[in-house]
Computed example of a mutant assay.
Amino acid sequence: MEKVMVNKRPGEVVARFSEFGLRLVAALPLLPILLVVAVAMWVLVPGFATMINLENMARVLAPLLVAAIGATFVMLTGGIDLSVGATFGLASVVGATVMRDTGSVGLGLVAGIAVGAAVGAANGVAVARLKLSPFVYTLAILLTVRATAFLLSRGYSVGRLPREATALGRSQILGVPSLLWVALVILAIGLVALHKTPFGRSVYLVGSNERAATFNAINVRRTKWLVYFIGGTLSGLASMLAVLRLGSGAPVLGDTILLQIIAAVVVGGTSVFGGEGGLWRTFTGVVLVVILEKGLDLMGVAFYDQAVVIGAVILFGSAFGVYLRRRRNLGLR
């Protein structure tokens, strides 16, 4: 009897491990691709796995992750915010200017985050209350906010910040960049909000079916306003993390981040139609985008060629997401 039990245990362990792996891949469909790309970069690109490069990647990842978390909330409701990059640039200009002129890093951080919150609140009112098209309205806001950033800065970057700013941006806690700790805290808060609160359930339901959400006594307008407000606020916070890392702000600072955010969220597995996805999927998408960007940098690939690669990633991710949804709707495995 004891021999039978002993013989069964390894099989049970293997079965449970396989089941866990299948569930993990189902929850994070990008994970296998992410692991393959990471190993390929580690093996093929000299200097990729060095401690200096990993620290740089962590500091680049932090603002992108924070902004992508906000974008995920918006996309889960079936919306989109094209003004994220422009808000990022304007917040960096305002925050850096306040830091430079007052000598206070704290005031600059508050000012930059407030700019993001204000743009997010305005977006929420337009989409939720006035029922304007999210695509058209946020495209118009993108142009307006970007022009404002150039007017305030006269097209130049804003530097000469207090030493405390760059010291904070380059500091570490337990050997991990402080900026990454901030991003991980935001991720943890976002996960709790989405999966442990009524607000999170309302976000998914609004994205799945607005009419059903209304019948379930969910305030659709408030939910939509909140996700755009969260998206704008986190865009402002992400901008401040970038200012601390770079030691300056600039109107063009967010020009490429919109493409990166959309790539990370869509490829991670969040549906552009709403109601499906999550922050862990966005996290894997952000890591993949950063790995590709840094790996291509080390390989000497030009900036515009990198944009082509990221665009291809968005296309592949969208097609793959549609394929998975069709298989699930048809009951295939």
Rank of each mutant, 00 (worst) to 15 (best):
V4W: 04
P32N: 09
I33A: 15
L34D: 04
M41N: 12
V43Q: 12
L44P: 01
L44G: 03
A62C: 03
F73L: 07
L76V: 03
T77N: 09
A86I: 02
L90G: 12
S92Y: 03
T97Q: 11
M99D: 06
R100W: 00
D101E: 15
D101T: 14
S104D: 08
G106F: 13
V110Y: 04
I113N: 07
V115A: 09
G116W: 01
V119H: 02
A121S: 11
N123S: 11
F135V: 06
T138Q: 06
R146W: 02
L152G: 12
Q172K: 15
I173A: 15
L174R: 09
S178F: 08
A183Y: 00
L184R: 04
G190R: 04
H195A: 10
T197I: 00
F199H: 03
G207F: 01
S208V: 04
E210D: 07
R222C: 07
T223H: 03
V227M: 01
I230Q: 07
L234R: 07
L237N: 09
G247H: 07
A250R: 08
G254H: 07
T256F: 06
I257R: 10
G268W: 00
G275S: 14
G277K: 13
G278S: 15
L279C: 08
R281L: 09
V289N: 08
L296T: 11
G300H: 04
F320V: 03
R327V: 01
R328P: 00
N329F: 01
